[in-house]
Structure formats: structure tokens, C-alpha cells
Simulated scan of single mutants.
Amino acid sequence: MNVYEEKMQLQELVDTFAIWADEMKLHEQAQLFTENGELESHSADGQVFSFKGREKIEESCTNFMNLFDIHFHNNGQALFQI
């Protein structure tokens, strides 16, 4: 696989993550992580939250996304350095 193909696959992963968040397919979204994967979230006031494992990632994303009535993510640009 060449660098261009790798970059395209990474962009597809980012896009899929966002689309599934918008569609509230949070179980499917959590499956994009490895079984012991980690998700780190940073708040505007500097707090850092860390979730490890698909179950905790799904739970945290569900709790957060349930705060909103409308979901929309925009992934217009991406820069991957390999």
C-alpha cells in the first residue's frame, strides 16, 4: 500500500466516525476502536477526559451526544503526516 492509499483510508476512517456520530450509530462507532482503544476528549476549559475500551468509549459518546437534538460534523480538511 502506498502513502496515498494510507491517507485515503485514514480520511475514510475519520469521515465514518463523524457520519456515525451524526446518525447516532454509537455502537458501530465504538467498534472503530481496537478492543482496548482509548478516546481522549479535551474541554474548552482545559479539562481532559479519557475513556479506555469500546464499552467505555460507547458510553461516553452516547452520554455526550444525548445532550444535543441535532448532530452535524464537518471534516473538510485533514492533514496526515506519515
Results as ranks from 00 to 15, higher is better:
residue 1 M to D: 14
residue 2 N to V: 11
residue 3 V to E: 14
residue 4 Y to V: 11
residue 4 Y to D: 07
residue 4 Y to I: 10
residue 4 Y to H: 06
residue 5 E to R: 12
residue 5 E to T: 13
residue 6 E to F: 10
residue 6 E to R: 09
residue 6 E to G: 07
residue 6 E to C: 08
residue 6 E to Q: 15
residue 8 M to G: 04
residue 9 Q to D: 15
residue 9 Q to I: 14
residue 9 Q to V: 13
residue 10 L to C: 08
residue 11 Q to L: 10
residue 11 Q to D: 12
residue 11 Q to Y: 12
residue 12 E to H: 12
residue 12 E to P: 00
residue 13 L to I: 10
residue 13 L to N: 06
residue 13 L to W: 06
residue 13 L to Y: 04
residue 14 V to P: 00
residue 14 V to A: 10
residue 15 D to C: 12
residue 16 T to S: 09
residue 16 T to Y: 04
residue 16 T to M: 07
residue 16 T to F: 00
residue 16 T to L: 15
residue 16 T to R: 09
residue 16 T to E: 13
residue 17 F to Q: 06
residue 18 A to N: 12
residue 19 I to L: 09
residue 19 I to K: 12
residue 20 W to Y: 02
residue 20 W to A: 02
residue 21 A to I: 08
residue 21 A to N: 10
residue 22 D to I: 15
residue 23 E to L: 13
residue 23 E to N: 08
residue 23 E to C: 04
residue 23 E to V: 00
residue 23 E to T: 00
residue 24 M to T: 08
residue 24 M to E: 05
residue 25 K to R: 15
residue 26 L to C: 02
residue 26 L to M: 06
residue 27 H to S: 09
residue 28 E to D: 12
residue 29 Q to W: 07
residue 29 Q to P: 00
residue 30 A to R: 07
residue 30 A to D: 10
residue 31 Q to P: 03
residue 31 Q to W: 02
residue 32 L to V: 05
residue 32 L to I: 13
residue 33 F to E: 05
residue 34 T to Q: 06
residue 34 T to W: 05
residue 35 E to N: 03
residue 35 E to C: 00
residue 35 E to M: 03
residue 35 E to F: 03
residue 37 G to E: 06
residue 37 G to M: 03
residue 39 L to R: 08
residue 41 S to Q: 14
residue 42 H to P: 00
residue 42 H to K: 13
residue 43 S to H: 15
residue 43 S to C: 10
residue 44 A to R: 14
residue 45 D to A: 15
residue 46 G to Y: 01
residue 46 G to A: 07
residue 46 G to W: 02
residue 47 Q to D: 11
residue 47 Q to P: 01
residue 47 Q to M: 15
residue 48 V to Q: 06
residue 48 V to Y: 02
residue 49 F to L: 15
residue 49 F to K: 08
residue 49 F to V: 06
residue 51 F to E: 09
residue 53 G to W: 01
residue 53 G to N: 01
residue 54 R to D: 00
residue 55 E to R: 08
residue 55 E to Y: 01
residue 56 K to I: 02
residue 57 I to M: 01
residue 57 I to E: 02
residue 58 E to L: 09
residue 59 E to S: 15
residue 61 C to V: 09
residue 64 F to W: 04
residue 64 F to P: 06
residue 64 F to M: 14
residue 65 M to I: 07
residue 65 M to V: 03
residue 67 L to E: 05
residue 68 F to H: 04
residue 69 D to V: 12
residue 70 I to Q: 15
residue 71 H to D: 03
residue 71 H to I: 14
residue 71 H to P: 04
residue 73 H to E: 06
residue 74 N to V: 11
residue 75 N to A: 14
residue 75 N to H: 13
residue 76 G to L: 15
residue 78 A to G: 12
residue 80 F to M: 08
